[in-house]
């Protein structure tokens, strides 16, 4: 049975907990703004005064980057990879196996709490002001908004499943150096978070389209600026849903193996 109240408590607890770490909030927001500045500048210079490139207007491209930075703020407010690894190494997660709840779900709901806190205290105020003052393209159709919010949420779940699964790999690997760097690279480039897939060389774009990462940033961003439109929206969200199922199964598999390992070897 799914115990809503228990997981709701996790979310609430982590919401209140994030409030205590005020420095975290300001620091995350600070570096989010710096990266926004960086990628905003890069794309401004790449377009070099042109109205459009590759069929996408400069205004749409800038919007893409701003939305992308907003989403990476949202995604970055959850439990970070290193913290999961740390919890594995210190045995915190092994201890939680004895508790009457599902550990991956417990962390997901805890993330909901901290993400929500960060969104209302930092991200929303900043990005509402940005949209107000910058010349960005905002969808008029409420259905597009709905599709975007849904796609962004699914993207969040995909990222969560992948990141958690990578974190749990720490159960099996003594040192994860190379693995996590590949993860971060895939996260930033193949997800289309800073360069949209349509600017990729053809082979790389098709390679990325076979991977789950595009569902995290590329699909919601492109829906927002109207590059994915009409029926494409449904196929794209369909792809996302496919990947969220696959990554979730992957996470469950890794988790099952990890918990077996804990039970057999005591962590």
């Amino acid at each position: 049975m799914f115990n809503y109240r228990l997981y709701w408590t996790f979310a609430k607890k982590s919401f209140l907990r994030s409030a205590v770490y005020r420095f975290d909030v300001w620091s995350r927001l600070g570096s989010n703004v710096i990266f926004l500045l960086m990628w905003g500048s890069i794309w401004t210079v790449l377009y070099a005064g042109r109205e459009e490139a590759g069929g996408v207007s400069f205004q749409a491209m800038l919007t893409y980057i701003v939305v992308s930075q907003f989403l990476s703020g949202v995604n970055g407010a959850g439990t970070p990879l290193w913290e999961i690894q740390e919890k594995v190494r210190t045995g915190d997660i092994s201890l939680e196996l004895m508790r009457p709840f599902d550990v991956p779900l417990r962390y997901l709901f805890a993330d909901f709490g901290s993400v929500f806190f960060y969104m209302i205290t930092a991200l929303m105020p900043l990005y509402i002001i940005l949209f107000f003052f910058m010349d960005l393209s905002i969808p008029n159709d409420p259905l597009i908004w709905l599709a975007f919010l849904f796609a962004a949420f699914i993207g969040f779940l995909i990222r969560y499943c992948i990141e958690m699964a990578f974190g749990l790999l720490t159960f099996f690997l003594v040192e994860t150096g190379g693995v996590e760097d590949i993860f971060y690279f895939a996260m930033s480039l193949l997800s289309g978070s800073v360069i949209p897939l349509w600017f990729f060389p053809g082979w790389l774009a098709s390679f990325a389209s076979y991977l789950p990462f595009q569902g995290i940033y590329y699909i919601p961003n492109a829906i927002f600026i109207g590059e994915i439109a009409g029926n494409q929206i449904f196929t794209s969200i369909g792809i996302q849903l496919f990947w969220v199922v696959v990554t979730y199964i992957f996470l469950r598999l890794v988790w099952k193996k990890a918990s077996q390992k804990v039970v057999v070897q005591g962590g």
Partner: peptide, 10 residues
């Protein structure tokens, strides 16, 4: 690689 991809079109 990110730099290369970025400059592939531009």
């Amino acid at each position: 690689i990110t730099m290369w991809v970025m400059l592939y079109q531009f």
